[in-house]
Design a binder for these strands. Structure first.
Length: 405
DNA sequence: TCTGGGGTCCTAGGACCC
DNA sequence: TCTGGGGTCCTAGGACCC
């Protein structure tokens, strides 16, 4: 039975939202980026015309376009806009699977059966997104998710590409393996496929399953099918939300450091942010991971699984710091620190009254509530105060934005 | 101012239990 | 006493996605 699957990919998403909300940025070459030692997250089409690309460093981007305007990312705003876009999709089908902040799969088989053409549905969805949010998107249409995903990449911006079932085999057979990027075939895999003499979709689809599974494990089976444009996975319903598996934060220091005070300060900040989000999601976890990238870009991760679930920033910090002690004394300067908590479960206890919580949880919750109401870091726990003492907030570029409010 | 930040999944080896 | 195997959990690293 033929299905009609859409992949809708928002064009230059973060940059377009910034241009919609600030008229002064419209028609200008802008990039959305982070703070400190950062790279381009999204470039507007005006900036792309100069050769500015995602993942470029800011100085590099400026070389291409000297009058480039950098805008600091405001993720809350982008999430908010995503929810509005999802609402539009839900008017067409309940099978809306969120693939990323700017991409969704939609199963519109039922509308096609009722006589609407895929193209007309796509035009209507694009019109609504434009009318209501002034944003453009590319729509890829195919008989399954893999085909829809590749179709969406074929025309940008403001694209609309439909690949019919009868055309799938021919199109996929003629594609180079590098063009499968985005459907689970990244740079490393396509490179290894090439080394095996498999350069096109046709060659991969005709390769022996034994060869593919020998070199790629379980991915081998998937590769052979994907290279033919075959995929039977269904589009999930919007209500079937995937449970969160881990929550974490990482940050590249403004400059490499040997200073343990700076390391401790950053770890506290990261644990504070991680804990805050963990509690906001009403979760608790028991595996704490530490990620360190050294100045020479070498990196390692360490994790520890506790016998009980934790959720306070302090408990996360205690474990993360213990992990860090395992690499002391430092042999190289630290470039990046990351903390995450996994093995998470829903934390029912939080629905109980305050009196059920121990003092530390009560404090953490109260701080979170106040910060939610009045802005991040309005109320500071001791760890943030210590971080502040060592100048970490300033180094993070946070001073003035939060502390002085 | 060379190289961000948020995730997920897979693998291989070791510990431990039956 | 020696040897083997299955299952599960954990760790560290790598690949992938946007």
């Amino acid at each position: 039975m033929d299905r009609t699957i859409f992949l809708i990919d928002m064009n230059s998403y973060f940059a377009s939202i910034e241009q919609v909300s600030n008229p002064a940025l419209r028609g200008k070459p802008i990039v959305v980026c982070g703070e400190g030692r950062t790279v381009v997250t999204t470039a507007s089409y005006e900036a792309r015309a100069y050769g500015v690309k995602t993942a470029m460093t800011l100085p590099e981007a400026r070389k291409h376009c000297p009058h480039l305007i950098p805008v600091i990312a405001n993720v809350d705003k982008y999430v908010d806009t995503s929810l509005k876009i999802h609402k539009i999709f839900l008017d067409f089908t309940e099978q809306v699977e969120v693939f990323s902040i700017d991409e969704c799969f939609l199963d519109l088989t039922h509308l096609v059966k009722r006589g609407f053409t895929p193209r007309d549905i796509a035009v209507e969805i694009k019109k609504r997104i434009w009318d209501e949010l002034h944003l453009k998107c590319s729509v890829g249409i195919g008989p399954n998710k893999v085909v829809a995903k590749l179709a969406a990449k074929m025309q940008k911006p403001d694209g609309l590409t439909e690949i019919r079932q009868e055309a799938v085999r021919g199109i996929f057979a003629g594609m180079k393996v590098e063009e499968f990027q985005g459907i689970g075939v990244g740079g490393r895999i396509s490179e290894r496929l090439r080394m095996l003499g498999l350069e096109t979709g046709k060659q991969v689809s005709e390769a022996s399953t034994d060869l593919l599974t020998y070199h790629f494990g379980v991915i081998g089976h998937y590769l052979k099918r994907a290279a033919r444009g075959e995929d039977s996975s269904r589009v999930k319903k919007y209500s079937e939300e995937e449970p969160i598996k881990s929550v974490g934060h990482s940050h590249t220091l403004t400059s490499d450091t040997w200073d343990m005070n700076v390391v401790r300060g950053y770890l506290m900040m990261l644990c504070e942010k991680t804990g805050e989000r963990l509690r906001k999601a009403r979760l608790a976890g028991r595996t704490v991971s530490l990620y360190v990238r050294w100045a020479d870009f070498d990196s390692f991760s360490k994790q520890y699984t506790l016998g009980h679930f934790i959720k306070t920033s302090y408990d996360i910090y205690r474990t993360a710091y213990k992990l860090f002690e395992g690499v002391m004394p430092l042999r190289k300067a630290v470039r990046l620190l990351g903390v995450s908590i996994g093995n998470v479960i829903a934390d029912q206890k939080q629905q109980y009254l305050f009196e059920d919580m121990n003092k530390r949880e009560l404090l953490a919750n109260t701080v979170d509530e106040l910060n939610k109401k009045y802005g991040s870091f309005t109320v500071k726990t001791t760890s943030v105060l210590v971080a502040e003492k060592f100048g970490i907030l300033e180094r993070c570029g946070l001073i003035g934005r939060y502390i002085l409010k």
